[in-house]
């Protein structure tokens, strides 16, 4: 990708892609004898939509889990804003401005939609236990300020009518949207989406694609996503990483990847001799 090494460029649809925000260098992750990720390097640039694709079991979700701090790789380093990241717990990664959604929805079922999204803003709420116990001063003020921010996201994702509904009662597609809202509420600099369109029908996929593009466009959020729907991936993303059996077999623009022989082999299968 030598042509992309300059600091920033403008895409065909007029968005500016900045420098590298996150770089994975020679990541290797093993579970006992199983090598889930083998010596993978790639980078994510400011403001782009970066897709990670690959057949089942390729190690895509493991990669996302490395980025979000669930797994610490045995070898290799993660560079974030140019600095090498120490091994961290997921909540520390979250505090650095990396939010994510899950493949199978991980919402708080017992809480209302509003409360779920409000939990996304925990970093912005710093009132101490005593201030909250008396509901005075800072706690009260923060609650209102953050509620305003959350309401903007609720408007943005068009879920106004369900804000007081317990999440457990919502249908699948809406839950996915609420989960996106919760991740957005944290105002992340990088948003990781693990199969945001899994199990959706065409209309829901269209809605979700629109939201992803809007988020990227309006908030300038960098997005890394895993997705199986090739049409969606090719349409949405600026650059694509392709993985197979824990190895990187392709990296580049959707067009590059589409014409890459190794990628075609991985997806269509090839006779081994």
């Amino acid at each position: 990708m030598n042509d992309m090494n300059h600091d920033s460029y403008v895409t065909a649809d007029g968005r500016t892609i900045g420098g590298v925000v996150m770089e994975m260098k020679n990541i290797t992750l093993r579970f006992g004898g199983v090598v889930a990720i083998q010596d993978i390097s790639f980078d994510i640039r400011q403001g782009e939509i970066r897709a990670i694709i690959g057949p089942n079991g390729a190690g895509k979700s493991s990669m996302l889990n490395v980025i979000s701090g669930f797994y610490n790789p045995q070898e290799g380093d993660v560079f974030y804003h140019g600095k090498k990241r120490k091994p961290m717990r997921p909540y520390q990664v979250a505090r650095q401005g990396i939010a994510r959604t899950f493949q199978n929805i991980a919402l708080f079922e017992g809480m209302s939609v509003l409360d779920n999204i409000m939990t996304g803003r925990l970093h912005q709420m710093k009132a101490g236990l005593f201030s909250q116990a008396l509901w005075a001063g800072r706690a009260n003020r923060e609650e209102v300020e953050n509620r305003e921010a959350v309401e903007k996201i609720i408007d943005f994702l068009e879920i106004q009518s369900i804000r007081k509904t317990p999440v457990g009662r919502l249908p699948y597609g809406l839950k996915k949207r609420v989960e996106l809202a919760r991740a957005l509420a944290a105002e992340p600099s990088i948003l990781l989406l693990d199969e945001p369109m899994a199990g959706m029908n065409v209309e829901e996929k269209e809605d979700m694609s629109r939201f992803i593009l809007d988020v990227n466009d309006e908030f300038g959020t960098t997005i890394a996503l895993i997705e199986h729907d090739m049409g969606v991936v090719m349409d949405l993303s600026d650059r694509v990483v392709v993985m197979d059996y824990g190895k990187k077999i392709g990296d580049g623009t959707p067009d590059d990847v589409r014409n890459n022989q190794a990628v075609i082999d991985a997806y269509l299968g090839v006779a081994h001799d």
């Binding site: 909540y91 899950f102 991980a106």
Partner: peptide
Amino acid sequence: MDIAAEIIG
């Protein structure tokens, strides 16, 4: 969901 709680900080 403690895993999701941790992931949002």
